[in-house]
């Protein structure tokens, strides 16, 4: 089994939409079901974290700018770690991610194993 980092990106535009409480509730359920489904296969390595929209970018020469980040069109909303046989399987698992239903994307990255 190899480990993969799934990075969730969301278009800043879509985050300006004002969802109803029902939609929010529904969205939360979708996330819980998706994560629960990965955990039920014993493939959830870490529930990771959700990231707030606030942030700063630090550049050489003491340059600190506030987010949003002009270089990347989409904002990183969070990440989890999973285990899978292959990059293909990890990508297959990612297809169920609810971020895709609101115009976001999942970046799948293999973790380089340490100490081998």
């Amino acid at each position: 089994m190899n480990e993969f980092l799934l990075i969730f990106r969301r278009d800043l535009q879509s985050s300006e939409m004002q969802p109803s409480p029902e939609q929010l509730q529904n969205m939360m359920k979708k996330w819980q079901n998706w994560m629960g489904g990965i955990a039920a296969r014993n493939k959830l390595v870490s529930s990771g974290n959700r990231l707030s929209n606030e942030g700063k970018v630090v550049k050489p020469g003491d340059v600190v700018t506030n987010g949003p980040y002009v270089e990347i069109k989409e904002l990183i909303g969070g990440y989890i770690m999973i285990s899978a046989e292959s990059l293909e399987e990890a990508a297959e698992i990612s297809k169920g991610c609810p971020i895709l239903t609101v115009g976001g994307s999942v970046e799948v990255r293999a973790v380089i194993p340490m100490g081998t």
């Binding site: 359920k29 819980q32 079901n33 994560m35 629960g36 955990a39 039920a40 296969r41 959830l44």
Partner: peptide, 22 residues
């Protein structure tokens, strides 16, 4: 029950938990 199983499996996996969730 489903949401509680989802949370439970995220912190502690067990085959029985996975089956009950399903």
């Amino acid at each position: 029950i489903l949401q509680l199983y989802n949370q439970l499996l995220c912190i502690s996996y067990s085959p029985v938990g996975a089956l009950n969730r399903t």
